[in-house]
Amino acid sequence: MRRIGKVMKIAVTSTGKESASAMDARFGRTRWFMVADAETGAWEAHANEQNMNAVQGAGIQAAQLLVNLGVEAVITGHVGPKAFRTLKAAGVSIYLSEAATVEEALRLFRENRLSRVDQADVEGHWS
């Protein structure tokens, strides 16, 4: 796989652990993160189980998980303000997509057909 733009590692929120799995529209409470490594061309699946069931702050925790994995961009359906703030602080780019599958989302990204978001698109749940 060729290098995807300037990005080395990109994560896609996923309902399953295959690149053919359907995308999960949620960020913090996604079931899986499928992470594509641009250098090796490999997909890696990371379960988000722990954060999925968090009472609060799921998006913050999920964002930290991705940062610790060295992810530099993420494709998801929706992102709330707290996850957004965390991802931004770490310099992770956020792209929104309604693609059916994880692979499809990555393809759209490589074809430059996804736009980067500069603000959260869903309201957080305040206290």
Partner: peptide, 14 residues
């Protein structure tokens, strides 16, 4: 309460 994140050595408080 997941009220703190540390990313890239930066502390974020919610």
């Amino acid at each position: 309460y997941n009220a703190i994140a540390v990313v890239k050595e930066k502390v974020l408080i919610f």
